Amino acid sequence: MKAGLLAASCLLSTTPAAHAADSVDHGAAPSGNVTVVARFAHAQPSGIARLPDGRVVLSFPTSAQAHPGPVLAVWHGDTKLTAFPDANAQKDLISPLGMTVDGHGRLWVIDEGSVAGQTTPQTPAIVLIDPVANRIVRRFALAAPVVRADSHINDLRVDLTHGTEGTVFISDSSQTVHPAIIVLDIASGQARRLLADDRSVSAAPGHVMEVDGKLFRYDPDHPAMPQGGINGIGLSRDSTRLFWSPFSSRRLYSAPTAVLADPDVKPADLAQAVHDEGEVGVVDGIFTATDGSFYMADEERHGITRRAPDGALTLVAHDPRLIAPDSIAPDGTSGLLMTVGQWARLPAFHNGRDMQERPYILVRITQKKLIKI
């Protein structure tokens, strides 16, 4: 009893030792592995892809705002761009967005088919470019009922293991509440609309997201932030599974590509084949690494999240300059390149006021810091 009283007395009488500043969230400071490698004063880069010969291609969509210069270009460092596949082909491209390189080294590009202020119906398409010949070799037009008047085709991945020439999987985020996965058979050019309005491709009811220090709730009737259904889309390294995440959600889903590519699959069987992979965050672009892991642009964490093949998550990078991180590609070494959007600052979300703070940036991420989440 006396020993206990003595210990208590010592604790009460001890003079506080000198201490550092009050503790803060260790994730609040920038991760230190983000470098701005290009700044664009007018045109906002969105899609990014690295060709087999090392060239890096950027897309500059026009659906939200017009801009000078090419809409698809090879980036040569800093702000130097050259039109891709050439200057003449720019007239055949309306609003390039998501991109991917297939197993044959060909570049596939989403063309939204609309420009800012357009009042006529959009004409979305998938554009195939041969980077060796530097020319557009095929354009797959997407029409009703595969796309709707309120469709927003966003990103795509190419599976060469199903179909005689392969299969393209396309995310339709929807401008309203009708998202879906579009499956295109390359040989025939025929496309199908799958999982339309399914929970796995749709916004999560009541979803709340932090944007620029403010909280917004998903509201399809009065959007105050970028929102919608399936956005980021990724293919497993062996092409056996397709992964995707609705933008107004924090969950990742997957399904076997063999089922998705089967033109005779019944809707009920397809829905049954979808697997909930768990929570990952608010995801935009998804990049598949050589080890089978996914690198995902993380909107709320202003960075990149890595999902290992076993499902383990780590935060690769975070930085306040990453305002709406968008698309990811390898930088040719062990790092990553990522485009950065400012989509939530567009006039459409601010009663016509343009809240963007130019220039737009392209960043390089080195993988020296991994934070488990």
Rank of each mutant, 00 (worst) to 15 (best):
G105V: 02
I233D: 13
M338G: 11
S239H: 11
Q65P: 01
Q90W: 02
M338Q: 12
R55C: 04
D354K: 13
D276W: 08
A49K: 02
V316C: 00
E277V: 01
P124D: 05
A64R: 07
A258N: 04
L5R: 15
P330L: 01
I110Y: 02
L315C: 09
A344M: 07
V36Q: 01
I182D: 04
R39N: 12
V57M: 06
R199P: 10
A141V: 08
R217C: 06
P263N: 08
T176M: 04
L215F: 14
G228S: 12
P52L: 01
D331L: 05
D22F: 13
A187Y: 03
H318Q: 09
T366P: 01
T119R: 15
L11Q: 08
T100M: 08
V363F: 09
R250M: 14
G77A: 12
G189S: 11
A89W: 13
I170C: 08
I126W: 09
R251E: 07
L235P: 10
A125W: 00
H318Y: 03
A255C: 06
F247H: 14
V316F: 03
L336C: 03
P226N: 09
V37I: 06
D159I: 00
M209W: 11
F247S: 11
S188F: 04
G27M: 14
T314G: 07
L142N: 04
H67Q: 06
R345F: 13
T14S: 15
I230Q: 10
T62Q: 14
D219A: 03
Q356A: 10
P325W: 03
D238L: 11
I323D: 14
L194M: 14
P30W: 01
G32P: 08
I48H: 07
A289M: 01
A348C: 02
S63I: 00
V71H: 10
G228Y: 10
T314V: 06
A66F: 10
K369I: 02
I365W: 02
F60I: 02
P359Q: 10
P61K: 01
N134Y: 08
A38V: 03
A49N: 08
